[in-house]
């Protein structure tokens, strides 16, 4: 398969995306950098946060949506920063109104401001409400295969386990759990959180993840735009390696890559 023919799209809630990399828009120095990094990443699904507007301050302040127009990208409003199911649901109702009825959302309910570990009890409760209200829910979750299956059973359109904690950059800490989640899932599984550098993204994709969502790994790089480009390639490389099927690992091999016959000095002899 040739890589850029888009024969291998990521399908979420019935819609196809050529890029398997999803990126956030937080922690950039300004909107120009946000836009440049998003462009370099090739991502089509872009997460945004929903926050109270400043009242009466800087009325001419630029808007994120001018830099990342909803006409060009699929915006994925998220509930990052919410610590209860209620807050998460209210936030996404506001997001749907803000984005003219757009119903693809990222649900994330945190349990602890120190570690940013998700609260899965609140997440499950919010997911039930949101699905019943017609939202298409991509859900951030711990890497527990049973919870992941419950979220899928509720009707979430994608399950997004952490690779390690949000913003930690610690990479893929439990590939075995991720593999179980991927094996069991009938909806796309995306690693969300924990990726630190390009190899982490490639490993996630080689495990069989359908996509990777990241923010800090790009935004906190010394050169975010260059890292965005690296992540694009890593996700593509990881996906192709997964599809290609890797060679088996073994501690040593008696089969070198070059022919064993026809050597000018036969094997085992010295001149």
């Amino acid at each position: 398969m040739k890589p850029h023919e888009n024969l291998d799209p990521l399908v979420i809630a019935g819609k196809s995306y050529a890029s398997r990399l999803l990126v956030g828009t937080g922690k950039y120095k300004d909107f120009a950098e946000t836009r440049a990094a998003v462009e370099a990443s090739g991502a089509q699904i872009i997460t945004v946060a929903i926050r109270r507007t400043n009242i009466g301050q800087n009325p001419g302040e630029p808007s994120l949506l001018d830099a990342i127009p909803p006409s060009k990208y699929t915006l994925l409003p998220n509930t990052a920063g919410c610590y209860s199911a209620d807050d998460a649901v209210r936030t996404l109702r506001l997001a749907r109104e803000l984005l003219d009825g757009h119903d693809l959302v990222k649900l994330e309910v945190l349990g602890d401001p120190k570690t940013l570990f998700p609260n899965m009890v609140e997440t499950l409760s919010a997911a039930r409400t949101l699905v019943s209200e017609g939202f298409k829910v991509m859900v951030y979750t711990s890497d527990d295969p049973i919870i992941a299956r419950q979220l899928e059973d509720i009707g979430c359109v994608a399950v997004m386990p952490l690779a390690s904690l949000i913003g930690s950059g610690m990479g893929i800490l439990n590939p075995w759990n991720l593999q179980i989640i991927i094996e069991n899932a009938k909806v796309p599984v995306l690693v969300d959180a924990g990726v630190g550098t390009a190899s982490d993204a490639a490993i996630a994709m080689e495990l069989g993840c359908h996509g990777v969502l990241m923010n800090t790994a790009i935004a906190a790089a010394q050169n975010p735009v260059l890292m965005a480009s690296a992540m694009k390639k890593a996700v593509e490389a990881g996906r192709e390696a997964y599809l290609a099927g890797r060679m088996p690992k073994k501690p040593y091999s008696a089969a070198p890559s070059s022919p064993t016959a026809g050597l000018i000095t036969p094997a085992g002899k010295t001149t």
Binding site: T25, K27, Y28, R52, T53, L64, T91, M214
Partner: peptide
Amino acid sequence: LEIVVAVGGG
């Protein structure tokens, strides 16, 4: 009232 906008976030 709550009045919200979209801002940068992950």
